[in-house]
Design a protein around this nucleic acid. Sequence first.
DNA 1: ATGATATACCTCGCCTGTCAAGGTATTATT
DNA 2: AATAATACCTTGACAGGCGAGGTATATCAT
Lengths: 112, 112
Amino acid sequence: MALSADILRGHTDAIILAQLVAGDSYGYQINKTVTERTGGAYGFKEATLYTAFKRLEQNGLITSYWGEDGPGARRRYYAVTEAGMAKLAEDRQEWNETKRVMDALISWKEGL
Amino acid sequence: MALSADILRGHTDAIILAQLVAGDSYGYQINKTVTERTGGAYGFKEATLYTAFKRLEQNGLITSYWGEDGPGARRRYYAVTEAGMAKLAEDRQEWNETKRVMDALISWKEGL
DNA sequence: ATGATATACCTCGCCTGTCAAGGTATTATT
DNA sequence: AATAATACCTTGACAGGCGAGGTATATCAT
């Protein structure tokens, strides 16, 4: 099942931060990783992705730099900041809480 | 931890439908139930709730009727339609997929 | 050479769900 | 008379997602 982004709205920043803690990366690569890790179930639309980078950088959660010139198109790399790490920790807690809340609200309850 | 609605955006309809399959209910009651079932971690803002009812009814997922006159303020009751049931089944599947995808993307991986 | 495909980045403007703020009305409590 | 709880509703602003468009480099097939 392919997921719509409306369902994951608000989780975009957390997903990006989580990919970046594994090491600096760039837009195209991050998106490919996301698609692979979800078995093709999810991927960002480009506009969403670059909008998110801009937002994250403006909020001081990531920093960016141009990759060294090599063959192929230029790449802008992103790195998580300390604030980004802290935010990710919060987001992870929030996600656990989201699961708890949603399961309490929409799951099947045989006994109820 | 109190959850912001931005995190649950897109899940509002599913949450409401899930409450209604247990029996017809009205706005105020549904919201109280949601707050109770989540231990106070989540509740709809009124504007969100009534906007959602309108949307759900326009999409044929619920129907509404005024409760019989009794003491206290009038109540508008809502009932799930067949289409609403089908939609909820989809939403539940989608939620399971969401959990899988999010866990794959943001969880701690000791071994990775 | 020419076109297609993959890589790689970016912006503009629309759409949609959330919600602060405002409103109405009934009943019970202080 | 005032306050709180119950119960409903609308308007306008805001923010994130994204369709559509643009730019540029490199590879591969025709």
